[in-house]
Structure formats: C-alpha cells, structure tokens
Amino acid sequence: MYESFFDLNSRPFDLLPNPDYLYMSDTHGKALSYLKYGIQGRIGFILLTGEVGAGKTTLIRQLIKSHLERVTLAKVFNTRVDSRQLLAMINDDFGLETEGRGKIELVRDLNEFLIDEYARGNQAVLIIDEAQNLSLELLEEVRMLSNLETDGGKLLQIILVGQPELRKTLGSPALLQLRQRIQVACHLTPLKKNELREYVLSRLERAGNRDALRFEKGVFEEVYQNTHGIPRLVNILCDYILMDACANGKRETTRQDVVEIVEDLDFEQQYWCGDSSAAPQQCSKSYPSVRKAATNRNRQAERVLRNIKDMESRINVLEKELEKGGQASVLDMMDRLERLENSLMALGGRVDHALSMSGDIGLGRPVQAPPSAGPVRGEARLRPSKRRSWISRFLLGDG
C-alpha cells in the first residue's frame, strides 16, 4: 500500500473502529462524558444514537478501553436474534455457561451472577450495539432485565446504542415504560466543517506522519461537501486521496484531484443516494437527483465539445493531406474520423438522455433506459443498405 511512500506506521483511514484513532470532536467528547457520568451514577438506562458511520462503535470501544473502576462489562453487537439467543449472548459475555440452558435458566443464572457482582462491589454494565434492529418485544424484554434489583439499587445498567431509527422505535406507545427509564440520552452529530481538517491531520499524526500529504486550498471544503462530516465517509475518501497521490508519486493533493476521485468513485451514488432507504436524512436535501442529473449532463456536454474541437483539428489535417494527394493517408484518416463520429453520436445520445432524465426527475416521471450506442444484433441484416457517414459523403460525394 502507500504506508512506506508516506512514512506511515499504519493506514490512517482504516475503517476498523479503533479507539486509538478516536478524534474528540465536540459531540464525541460530550457523548463520552455523558456515558461515563451515567455509569458512575448507576443510571439504569443510557441511550446513544448517531448516523451510520458517525463513530458510535469507536466511542463505545473507547469507553471499554478506559478501564472504569469496578465495572464488569458485557457487549452485544449482533441484534438480529430471538429472545433466547439474546439472553445467551449476554450471559456468555459475562462469562456464564449457556449451552443446553433454556430461557428460564438463563434469566436465573444472570440474576444470581448480578447479585454476586453487586455483593463484591462490582457494577455490571450491558452494552447493546445496533439496538435499532431489536423488535418491540425484544426491547421490552431488555427493559425487564433492568427490573433485576436489590433494595440498594439496580443490578444491571444498560446502554442502548443505535442509529436514529432507534429513537423512533422507542417513541412507540408500547415502550412507554422503557422510554421513561432512559435518564441519559445523547446523539452523535457529524463533524463540523471547522473540525474536519484537524480530524484528518490527527489521524495522519497517529499513523506516524502528520505531514505525510500537503492539502492545497479547497481540498477540505471539497471533502466536506461530499461527506458532510460523517467520519466513515471522510475516511473512505481520504484513503482514496492517499492512494491517488501515491500512484502519481505526489506528496500534495488539490481540489481538482478530489473532484476527479469523487467522479471516478461515483461517490454520491455509492455512499449517499444509491440506497434511499439507508441514506442519511440530509441526502434528500443536499444531493437531490435533479442536481446529479444536471452535473452529469454538464460533464457529458463538455466531453462532446472536446470531441468536436478534436474533430475540427483532424479535418484540418485531412484537408492538408488531400492537397498533397496522399491517398493512403486520406483513407486512414477517413476511417479514424468515422470512428470518432460514431463515438460523438453515442455521446450525443447520452447527453439527450441526461437532459430528458433531469426533466423526468423534476416532473416525477419514470426514467427510460438510455439510447443504445449501436445497432441491435441482427439489425444490419434487415436493412437493404448502409448509409455512408457524413465524412465519406463530404469527401467522395453523395453517390
């Protein structure tokens, strides 16, 4: 990879939730303080939410790594399970035997374990990640676990971690009792625009070289425009920026470099609006389909104009060859121009399609497939004759 080229010890923008790379933005620092406060205060339920890729799991791993005094932690990261499986995973992470035990035995074993921990002066904490996948029934069963208590207080603290949909689920009337027991709730927001630069540089520094790459003016603005400060998306884009710079033997990157990388990756489609059901809420506001269609249309039009200018220069060369009477050169140039004409016609068809697509999107009409760049197989056999290109007609007459 590019580590040796940039004198790095590791990949600074790896997607693994590594707490060593956690950047304490305002929102992350506040959330970590709330979590520690809730645990130290023996609060029954704590809620942590955030968009996909906002850094929830990394924050939780930082919490685990912080070695809270006399705290026994259990972590559940797979939540697409039934009630018996959920209990088994909780008990297993607390170190209890689960094989061959039914739901009743699992609850009894957990209760006895929590009482023993409480007697030793330890505090049991359960962290459930991806909690937005839990059904109403499972969330109610989780609430029932918080009923395990003594006269001195709760035997189990529960931290629910999930995407924003979790808050909507908790708003259900069926979960009123659970909702009322949540005393600490925090939400991770994306990085602010003025935090993005330091986020990127801090990760490079922790990987061994803060000055690995020089970022020219406008680079961070372009990164923010395409990622909206979502840490995971920033990591993905910056990883590609480093790969691109390494491949080109450069130690600096420009805004135009980022624009080209985003275009090559089809970043908007891949990470934002490609799947509207999974895209963050700001997708529909900041990346409307009409804007995308217009952008694509402009790019296609620019390519067509470049091809037209190229064709004009080639025609000038062809005219000079005609004056010299070089027949072989003329035939070769005619063949090349005909291929260029076909390419131009195909690009023109795609531009027409982009124009119609932007109009259809704006009016809510279904988008039709783009015109074919070539004839349907077998079509040539149905035609009595093939019309010569305009280049041939121009040079050899209309015969």
Rank of each mutant, 00 (worst) to 15 (best):
R251K: 14
D332K: 14
E205T: 01
E338S: 11
L134Y: 11
L126G: 00
K309A: 15
A74Y: 10
V81G: 12
N342L: 11
D275K: 11
F5A: 11
Q180L: 05
L201T: 00
G102N: 15
R299Y: 12
K36N: 12
Q180P: 02
G95H: 04
T49E: 02
L145S: 10
M24D: 08
L318R: 03
H353E: 05
T57C: 03
E3M: 09
D264Q: 11
A328N: 08
N316E: 15
G349E: 12
P190L: 05
D264A: 13
R210C: 05
E205D: 14
R167I: 13
A212H: 04
N307H: 13
L170E: 00
K30A: 14
G162P: 06
T253E: 07
P12S: 06
Q132T: 07
L63F: 06
E252H: 11
A124G: 04
G95W: 07
L22N: 00
S329N: 13
N235I: 02
R210I: 08
Q269Y: 09
R210L: 13
R387Q: 14
V125R: 01
N78K: 13
G38V: 05
L305K: 10
M89K: 14
N226M: 08
K292F: 08
E69R: 06
G153P: 03
K193W: 00
E252D: 10
R291T: 11
V234G: 03
K65P: 00
L160R: 00
G44C: 06
G44L: 11
R383K: 15
G102P: 02
R120I: 00
V161K: 03
R255D: 06
V125M: 02
G249K: 08
I182G: 01
N342I: 04
M89E: 15
